[in-house]
Computed example of a mutant assay.
Amino acid sequence: MASSSFFFVACLLLLPFAYANINTTTITNTPSLCPFKSIYQFGDSFSDTGNFLRISGVTTSFHADRHPYGRTYFRKPTGRFSDGRLIVDYIAFALKLPFLAPYLDNSASFVHGVNFAVAGATALDSSFFSQRHINAPAYNVPISAQLKWYHAHLNATCHTPSACAQKVRNALFIFGEFGHDDYYNALAQRKSVHDTRAYVPYAVDAVINGVRDIVKSGAKRVIVPGTIPFGCLPVYLTAFRSSDPKAYDDLGCLKSLNDLSSYHNTYLMKALSLLSKELPSDAVVVYGDYYGAFRSVLRQASSLGFDSGSLLKACCGAGGVYNFDAKKMCGSGNVPVCSNPARSVNWDGFHPTDETNHRMSEILIDQVLRKITCA
Score class of each variant (00 low, 15 high):
T24V: 12
S144I: 07
D89T: 11
K371P: 05
D354V: 01
R190E: 09
L369E: 01
G320V: 09
V58F: 00
G317Q: 01
I174G: 02
H151P: 01
A206I: 04
S38Y: 13
V337N: 00
A186L: 13
A121G: 05
S5N: 07
L257Q: 03
T356Y: 00
D307M: 06
K277W: 07
H264C: 05
N340H: 15
H67R: 05
F240T: 09
A108Y: 03
R66G: 10
Q189P: 02
T49N: 05
D83A: 03
A247F: 03
A283H: 02
E177N: 14
Y150D: 04
T72I: 05
R221D: 07
A219G: 07
P280N: 01
K277M: 05
G231V: 06
L147F: 02
A301F: 01
A20E: 12
K255D: 08
D289V: 09
V207F: 03
K371Q: 12
V224W: 02
R370E: 10
L14W: 15
I55V: 13
L187Y: 06
K220R: 15
F175K: 07
G226M: 03
H63F: 15
N106L: 13
A198V: 09
V222D: 04
A247E: 06
A123P: 15
P280W: 00
T78L: 14
W149E: 05
D307H: 04
V207D: 02
G226V: 14
N323Y: 06
N170H: 12
R132P: 01
C330N: 01
G319S: 07
D65T: 08
L14Q: 11
A101M: 06
S261W: 00
T353H: 04
K220G: 06
T72K: 04
